[in-house]
């Protein structure tokens, strides 16, 4: 049974439909990525799952039971890492952790012990007694993450937990999140960083303008675009009309076409060299052709016709 089930969740703010009929599930020990540009509806979705925001329609099930049936029970299962740094900057990391642990229902002794564990695990132990306001952005992000873990939540909601930090700090956090997944925590991870979703998530849902466009494993999403490889043609493509090229539509699918480049995928599993020959014989001036593995960016591009800018 999935730990989190979201069914046709919708939310509007005035005329803006922020989330529109979103459904997905996250199982125990699974890391599910919700990928989308800023304003796609990721944070709104997380807020509804966390019980902060009331959905207009749809339902959230936590561990098989509707969230509204027993909100306090759901809150004991959930751990929420908000996008903003929800910390008391005057207090030290240890004080923050112990406070949120106590608030999560731990005894004073358990909160202290658990805080020590997390401070060690997140490499914060040596500065644990200093006020959070003296920390770097990466350190604050780690404290922000740790504050949600004191009460050992079975389901963790991470809302862009690596925004605004350097690559090294980001790698540390991603490694820690992998470790949590291995321990059996179900994780819903929202991000607009493609490489994070590719590197971390077992299943990915792509959200845009409040709609869940597609979901699945990375391999399945790649298959939707063009299997293992894509061909990128660079040259003068002004006025190019691929639908008019004889036999092209039977063998290739156009992912993106601009004045100076075209991304296309073969419709069948033909030999790449043969595909290249076909592409070089097209009635346009081609200066360069490259072959690459499809990325989530290509998936997003195919689904929306837009780049997912970081």
């Amino acid at each position: 049974m999935s730990l989190l089930r979201v069914e046709r969740l919708s939310k509007s703010f005035g005329a803006v439909r922020a989330v529109d009929g979103v459904s997905f599930e996250v199982g125990a020990g699974e890391l599910y990525g919700l990928l989308g540009p800023n304003g796609a509806g990721k944070t709104t979705t997380i807020a509804m799952i966390a019980g902060l925001l009331r959905p207009d329609s749809g339902e959230v099930f936590i561990d098989g039971r509707p969230l509204g049936a027993d909100p306090q029970r759901a809150r004991r299962i959930l751990g929420v890492v908000p996008q903003e740094l929800a910390l008391y900057e005057e207090l030290s990391a240890r004080e923050n952790l112990e406070f949120w642990g106590r608030l999560g229902g731990l005894s004073s002794r358990d909160a202290r012990r658990r805080a020590t564990e997390l401070l060690e695990a997140l490499s914060l132990a040596d500065r644990a007694r200093e006020p959070v306001k003296t920390y770097s952005g990466g350190m604050k992000r780690r404290v922000n993450l740790a504050c949600a873990l004191l009460h050992r939540p079975r389901l963790l909601l991470l809302d862009e937990p690596t925004v605004g930090i350097d690559p090294q700090a980001r790698l540390g956090i991603l490694e820690f999140i992998r470790h949590l997944r291995h321990e059996g925590t179900a994780i819903l991870y929202t991000t607009h960083y493609l490489e994070e979703a590719e590197a971390l998530c077992q299943r990915i849902g792509i959200l845009d303008h409040g709609h869940l466009l597609v979901e699945g494993t990375l391999a399945r999403l790649r298959e939707r675009v063009g299997g293992d490889r894509l061909f990128v043609l660079e040259g003068d493509l002004r006025g190019a009309r691929p639908e008019a090229w004889p036999g092209f539509a039977d063998r290739f699918r156009v992912i993106q076409l601009t004045e100076d480049h075209m991304v296309t995928a073969a419709r069948d599993a033909r030999d790449p060299a043969e595909c290249l020959r076909d592409l070089l014989n097209l009635p346009v001036r081609v200066e360069n052709v490259t072959v690459k593995r499809p990325s989530l960016s290509d998936v997003f591009l195919q689904l929306t016709g837009r780049e997912l800018r970081e």
């Binding site: 966390a50 019980g51 902060l52 909100p71 306090q72 809150r75 959930l78 929420v80 908000p82 903003e84 740094l85 929800a86 910390l87 008391y88 900057e89 949120w100 608030l103 999560g104 504050c147 949600a148 009460h151």
Partner: peptide, 13 residues
């Protein structure tokens, strides 16, 4: 503004 009230609400209804 810094979200600590909201964080409290994620733990207590």
């Amino acid at each position: 503004a810094c979200g600590t009230f909201e964080r409290y609400h994620t733990l207590h209804d």
